[in-house]
Amino acid sequence: MENGTEAINLIQTFLPLQLPGLTPEQSLTVETTWFVMAIIIAAAVFLSATLRQVPRGLQNVVEMLVGFLENFISDIVGPRGPAYFPLVATIFFFILVANYIGLIPGFVAPTSSINTTAACAVVVFVFYQYIGFKMHGIKYLKHFMGPIPVLAPIFFVMEIISQLARPLSLSLRLFANLTAGELIIKILMTFCVVGLPVVWMCWESLLTDWFQAFIFSLLTMIYLAGAIASDHEEEHA
């Protein structure tokens, strides 16, 4: 910021790298994303190497989260749900770690860049459309036609627009929440560098960060459920 409270970027201090073709902010985002990936991979390797019958410490926490997600996905998507557990859990843990890393002074959350969130949203969008087509074949398009054959063209256009709005809102939600949080920290820093921003950081860590990760995976599950179940309902009707 202009008035001397410019944040130090730990990543750029240790790894002063300017990736070709990117602006400094973008290359910082990419490097922080690598760091997040390193944390997740290291945690996965470490935890699977030291698995205990009676869980202790971090294993407890991760087991709780994984168990919660697993129950949740079979609740929402149904019996086919656990097949898509890897995607949902990967997105959940990536966004969770990426959100929380923004709270450490000297790091910028990668999810506060629209590029990261849009990438996640596009992956989800393409994946659930692919699953829909794979499950139902060309009949999947019937789901877009609405209940009345005469009005099918209108329904089709509307449905296409609402389908395209999904990745948009998915990426914007995460991006806007994180950006708003970071902006508020920056504004509070101009009032008082010590203390005051921490109050907001606590609030953010308690409410925004895990909740946004959870919501992203919840919406992924709901979209998947819609793609899988679309034909099923018509059979019953």
Partner: peptide, 17 residues
């Protein structure tokens, strides 16, 4: 609770736009 969260989030989206 699940559906409440979903509804709350969909309400929130408008403000995010």
């Amino acid at each position: 609770r699940t559906w409440f969260m979903l509804g709350a989030v969909l309400c929130e989206t408008v403000t995010l736009y």
